[in-house]
Design a binder for these strands. Structure first.
Lengths: 212, 212
DNA sequence: TGGTTTACATACATTCATGTTTGTATATAA
DNA sequence: TTATATACAAACATGAATGTATGTAAACCA
């Protein structure tokens, strides 16, 4: 039996992405051969080359599967018109967006593995260099959203008004970016993973005029 | 002419590290062959294998040449007994330590390139995985120093006292860690590199009771 | 001043990943 | 029902990197 139905093929494709993620995590992207990925998915390299042009395209497929939904969710939390919870002041919105991302990492293995691959098992050169630009672009988008949230917070008087919203926004993004990097590096979780919740709350508290 | 004097050999070794750094930056660590490094340094692979066991050892040599002095300098700024400048309150100490690191990146090409290699042109698996643990260890050390500085700041009344020094310290470290990551990724410098100074100042201002 | 190391260069053997090409059974469309 | 496109497997050809082994001229030491 060789030829599969369309759904079977879609499953094979998904299994390849799944396998790629796991082997990437273990061996690093560049040391992972397409043969390893194929056999880990229970197929041969023929299947890989059928579904993807090469390793880079497989990598991008893996990345997008996690990052596109994630960015959407962040946007939702930060921008949605109707208030999501009782306390939906702008600062709480930012806090919730950060906490949600951490929660997603805690709950979803694929997301966690993808982050880890992206942050310490990949070299951003040649065909992979584009990712750096995408990261920067995404950065700008997120910072803008934080910024407008901080502006509103200052107008509402719940955040200190003597610092520029733009820089507050960048400070938040840099904090969170650093947290994610450490989150995946933190082997036993004692340093950062277990404290992530509290660290986010502290970060936001620092900005509140009430300071609590 | 084959055999060189001891000093010549030391020069060759240094040239190899220099060459490795540049090719790593361009091609990524794993895609860089020892042949490329050797020829870029004007020697053959024989020289590489004479001075280093393999690529990993060369990588670690490159890393240590930049990171050991850098850690020392940070410690000096944060801990030195005598006050370095007129305003050497603990918060200014932290600020200076961060600013100095950024200045070093601005001034020294080797440091800059090494950081960039370490943060986006290297896969931390197998022989390179040890670096992750070293990073975590170094992390703990730095955070402890920030922490005691924040403690002193709170006792002096120059920093808000309602947040734990430990978490303030971690917030600072995560901020700076994120900044360094973005610093190297920021292609044209418009997003983060040019603002680094101001971002650091803002980060510290947030902590001051005077808030300015 | 001769023997021994040193600091490499050169040659060799092996392994392994990649991309492409070809083969093939079957789903699917006409 | 048959022709064609699909979803792979299998075979092939190529290239490149690694580690080691060997060669060697000059520095260094006794």
């Amino acid at each position: 039996m060789v030829r599969k139905t369309k759904e079977d093929a879609a499953i094979t494709r998904q299994r390849l992405i799944h396998a790629a993620r796991e082997v990437f995590l273990l061996k690093g992207v560049s040391r992972t051969s397409l043969e390893q990925i194929a056999s880990h998915a229970g197929v041969t390299r023929g299947a890989v080359y059928w579904h993807f042009k090469n390793k880079a395209e497989l990598f991008y497929a893996m990345r997008e599967q996690v990052f596109l939904p994630l960015i959407d969710r962040m946007d939702d939390t930060l921008l949605s018109e109707q208030s999501l919870t009782v306390d939906s002041d702008p600062l709480s919105r930012i806090e919730k967006s950060l906490l949600d991302t951490i929660k997603e990492l805690d709950l979803d293995l694929a997301t966690r593995q993808t982050y880890e691959v992206m942050m310490s098992k990949c070299e951003y050169v040649d065909e992979f260099a584009d990712v750096l630009q995408e990261i920067l672009n995404n950065c700008s988008g997120i910072v803008e959203k934080y910024e407008s949230a901080y502006e509103r917070s200052q107008k509402l008087g719940i955040a200190h008004s003597n610092l520029s919203p733009k820089e507050l926004a960048m400070d938040t993004h840099l904090f969170f970016s650093g947290l994610l990097h450490m989150w995946v590096k933190d082997a036993d979780g004692s340093l950062f993973r277990n404290r992530a919740h509290s660290l986010i709350q502290t970060h936001i508290k620092l900005r509140r005029t009430s300071l609590k």
